[in-house]
Amino acid sequence: MAKRGKQLVAARGKIDRSKRYGFEEGIQAALEAKFAKFDESVDVAVRLGVDPRHADQMIRSTVVLPHGTGKTVRVAVFAKGEKAQEARDAGADEVGAEDLLEKIQGGWLEFDRCVATPDMMAVVGKLGRVLGPRGLMPNTKTGTVTFDLAKAVKEIKAGKIEFRVEKGGIIHAPIGKASFGVEKLKENMEALLETLIRLKPTAAKGTYMKGIAVSTTMGPGVRLDVAEVKAISAKG
């Protein structure tokens, strides 16, 4: 612990806490401050000017990162018949119906995302207490309740991530691995920000994007210049 504490203090010393970095410069700073020996994930935190307590300001959606997340995502699918085969052909790791229900009820949870066809939700609903708290429950808003299983599974495997605003108005999302390098991480982050811009609630008043920070798994946060979001808005 003492060693890690010294490393973290040293990493923080490389970051100017009073500065708002440009996107590329900030990501580079976060990468230079990392100290773990493994390939750390890189995450973004965005503070939004919304009040999640109001339904019309609750933001929950998905985005397909152009360069993926760098992680192998295991997908479980609830489907029958031709749809089950469609899921298997698309690369799903586990496919089933009542048999998959029993397997999960028995304690098996070796998957990262769960997809289901609409007609299977009565079965999946029995797993609410198991999947819900883990954020694994299929949902129409995130495209995980659908008859187009091929598209859903392929997008998830390619780097589709889910995000949801927390009580404090903050969204946390992974944008890849440190090994991706600055350019790919920047493009992934911009894809996320573009999506957030499109999702701005009409009920949200004042400044929408109040703050952005990027960090590696173990490293310190680096605050970014929100003004650069205007360039992303212009692209859209």
Results as ranks from 00 to 15, higher is better:
R4W: 10
Q7M: 15
L8T: 12
V9F: 13
A10L: 11
K14I: 04
K14N: 03
K14R: 15
S18C: 07
Y21A: 10
G22T: 07
G26P: 12
G26Q: 11
F38H: 11
D39G: 08
D43V: 04
V44H: 09
A45M: 11
L48N: 09
V50E: 00
R53D: 13
D56S: 03
Q57N: 10
R60M: 12
R60C: 04
L65A: 07
L65N: 08
L65I: 10
G70V: 08
T72F: 06
T72H: 09
V73W: 13
V77K: 00
F78P: 03
A79W: 00
K80Q: 14
K80F: 02
K80W: 00
G81T: 06
E82K: 15
A87N: 12
A87F: 01
R88D: 08
G91H: 06
E94V: 15
G96Q: 08
A97P: 03
I104E: 01
G106V: 00
G106S: 09
L109Q: 02
R113L: 05
V115L: 12
M120Y: 02
A122W: 01
G125E: 09
L127S: 03
L131V: 06
L136K: 13
P138F: 05
N139Q: 10
K141M: 10
A150F: 05
E155T: 08
I156N: 11
A158P: 07
A158Y: 07
A158G: 11
E162M: 03
F163T: 09
R164Q: 14
V165W: 01
G168Q: 13
G168P: 03
G168Y: 12
G169Q: 13
I171D: 04
I171T: 11
H172G: 11
G176C: 09
V182Y: 15
E183I: 08
K186Q: 13
E187R: 15
N188E: 14
A191P: 14
L193I: 15
L196E: 04
K200N: 00
A203M: 01
A203Q: 08
A203H: 02
T207M: 06
M209C: 05
V214H: 12
T216P: 01
M218V: 15
G219D: 04
P220W: 00
V222F: 14
V222P: 14
V222H: 14
D225R: 11
D225S: 13
D225A: 07
V226R: 06
V226T: 15
A227M: 05
E228M: 06
V229G: 05
A234N: 06
